[in-house]
Nucleic acid binder design. Structure first.
Lengths: 126, 126
DNA sequence: TAGTGCATGTCGGAAATTCCGACAAGAGCT
DNA sequence: AGCTCTTGTCGGAATTTCCGACATGCACTA
């Protein structure tokens, strides 16, 4: 869960929030960590660590937990209606999806050209 | 991604299916693995491995990818309306969620009572 | 056809995460 | 106090992920 990779804390460790929601949902349906662990075929300590944000949750695990807790997956992820995606990528994505395959390739190349131009020389990883 | 832990193959590696959906969504918006990798702050090879089901996807990563690809998270998870959970757990969960807090506590205690009664002395697990 | 560029797949060892039993803390009950 | 149950935490083994280097495949073009 490195938690160091996210430069300056995305908001508050997302994992902690997710874990808290998972705990809330579990307690609401009145299940014990041990029962959940058994259902998920995980060690109980993993459930504890997940709920405290010390262990990540895979997408598949979340799906399974959502069913067990009888909540839509989005209750845990917080379905964001639209994007707060870095402008360049959002633009490229939206625009590209509306074009033909050829035009998309074209635009794609051009966007890359612009991007490489505006960045410092360096190498990978802007 | 052990894939061995799931005794007899859940249906077909769920990760493969999820990876395929992620690839489809990515290609639809016309992004390259490299761009996704950059946006996600991941090595590009990770994106490749994810789409081929050789690497898992964390819940948080999925949420982020869903935004990037402009799809609801459930498009990838396939929101299942209800569960096929072990009878005892399903019953407890469904029943409990329909009751008031007090009644739920009550039921919980009673369920535990029944369980402890039907178990062999020790403290085992059903 | 050979050659070039680009997107994606794969390998291998280092780094990070997860597993899982053992032990501990805290609450509730007798 | 003592007992039981639930959850938290520690530590080393097992597994997964990272990430560069290299391989493959396709499209284009001379």
């Amino acid at each position: 869960m490195t938690a160091e990779r996210m430069g300056f804390a995305v908001a508050e460790d997302e994992g902690v929030i997710l874990g808290a929601k998972l705990r809330e949902a579990r307690e609401y349906v009145g299940l014990k960590q041990e029962q959940v662990a058994q259902h998920m075929e995980l060690p109980r300590t993993a459930v504890s660590e997940i709920e405290n944000g010390r262990r990540g949750v895979s997408a598949i695990e979340l799906k399974k937990l959502a069913r067990l807790y009888q909540r839509p997956v989005t209750w845990f992820t917080g379905e964001e209606p639209e994007a707060a995606v870095p402008a360049d990528v959002a633009f490229l994505a939206r625009t590209a999806s509306a074009l033909s395959d050829n035009d998309r390739q074209e635009l794609q190349r051009f966007a890359e050209f612009l991007r490489s131009r505006s960045k410092v020389a360096g190498n990978g990883r802007s």
